[in-house]
Amino acid sequence: MNTAGTARVALYWAPELDDPLHHAASAWLGRDAETGAALEQPPLPDIHAITAEARLYGFHATLKAPFRPLAPWAEVREAAAAMAAGIAPFDLPPLAVAELGGFLALREAAPCPPLHALADTATEALDRFRAPPTEAELARRLAAGLGPSQEAMLRRWGYPHVFAEWRFHLTLTRRLTPAERDLYRPAAEAWVGLAAGRPRRVGSVCLFTQAAAGAPFRIAERLPLGGAGG
C-alpha cells in the first residue's frame, strides 16, 4: 500500500474479514474500513449522523491511538510487525453492546488480561514514532475534563486512555441523549449482538492509516500475532 504523505497512523484491533462481526458492524457504521466502500445502513432515523465520527475512524478497538508519524511508513510497519510477532494469539471473550461515556460500544463480557497487555505493549512499542500533540490538540483533549491520571497520560503518551485508563471498546455511536439511547441500544443489539457474542480468537492487529486530515481511516495492513500466520 502506498502511504506516502500519510497524515496519521494507528494500531487497532478489528475483526477478521470472514468474521460476521466485520460485516454487521461495517454496515451499522456505513463504511467498510478494509475496502473503503460505503455500505447501506439499518433503516433508523438519523443513523448516518449518529455514526459519523465512528464511521470516519472505521470499526475498531484502539491499541495505539492515531499519531502523526515521525519516521517513514516502512519503519513504523516493521516495528509494528515485530511487536505483533512477539505476542501469542489469544481468545477474546464474547462482546456485547454497552454504554461507555454516553456512547454505545461493544465491550468484552469478562476480563481479558492478554488483551490489556496487548494494548500496553502497543502503546510503548510505537511511541518513538509519534510526533507530540500540538497545543491545539492538547487544549481540545484537556477541555473534555480529564482526571489527573488521564492528563498525565495525555502529556506523556499523547492520549489519555492508556494503561490503567485504557478500556477496550469498539465504538458504535456518538454520545446519545436518553431518548436516542432508548432507540439505538436495542437496535444495535439486534443488528450486531449475535455476531458480537460469537467466540473468536485474536490472531492479528491492524495498522490503520489516514491519508489527510479529515479523511477516513483505512486498514493498511493486518499483522499476524506470533504463531498466527507463520
Rank of each mutant, 00 (worst) to 15 (best):
D182L: 13
L172H: 13
G36F: 13
S26T: 04
E99Y: 00
T62V: 02
E137Y: 06
G227T: 08
T6Q: 13
V205D: 07
L176N: 04
E180I: 01
L172T: 01
P69R: 11
G229Q: 12
R174G: 15
Y159A: 08
A213C: 03
L17D: 10
A164M: 03
R130C: 14
W28L: 05
W28E: 03
P224A: 09
W73F: 14
C206I: 10
E99C: 05
E221M: 08
E135P: 00
A80P: 06
A71I: 05
V202F: 08
E78T: 14
Q150T: 10
F67Y: 14
F217Q: 09
A33I: 02
P114K: 14
W13E: 10
L21V: 10
G214T: 03
E78R: 15
L115S: 15
D19K: 04
F129I: 03
D46L: 01
A220T: 13
R198H: 11
T134N: 05
E75I: 07
T134C: 04
A82Q: 15
L11R: 14
H161M: 12
A52Q: 00
F208K: 07
C112N: 13
E151I: 12
L44C: 09
D127F: 02
G227C: 07
G197Q: 11
R140D: 08
R218C: 14
R130G: 06
P93H: 09
T173I: 04
W73H: 10
A187N: 11
M153Q: 12
A136F: 06
P132F: 07
R128M: 02
G36D: 12
A10Y: 03
R107L: 07
L106T: 09
L104T: 07
E75T: 11
P89W: 07
W157R: 06
D19V: 12
P216F: 11
C112I: 03
A109G: 04
Y184M: 13
V97G: 13
E165K: 11
E78V: 11
L207E: 09
F168V: 06
G58C: 10
R55D: 07
P114Q: 10
A82H: 13
R107F: 01
A81P: 01
E99K: 13
P89H: 10
A144K: 15
Q210P: 01
S149A: 15
L115M: 15
L207H: 12
A7I: 01
A79C: 10
H116R: 15
E99I: 06
S26A: 15
H116L: 09
T123W: 11
H116Q: 12
E189Y: 06
L100M: 11
D19Y: 00
H23E: 15
A52H: 00
A79G: 02
A61G: 09
P178S: 08
Y184I: 01
R31Y: 00
A88V: 13
R201D: 01
M83H: 05
R222D: 02
E16N: 04
A211C: 03
L70Q: 14
R31S: 10
L172Q: 05
A109D: 14
F103K: 04
A187K: 07
D18F: 01
E40F: 04
A33D: 04
E53M: 00
R8I: 01
M83Q: 11
G214E: 02
G197T: 02
L142S: 01
A52P: 05
W13A: 06
A110K: 09
A37E: 14
E75Y: 03
I87W: 08
A139S: 03
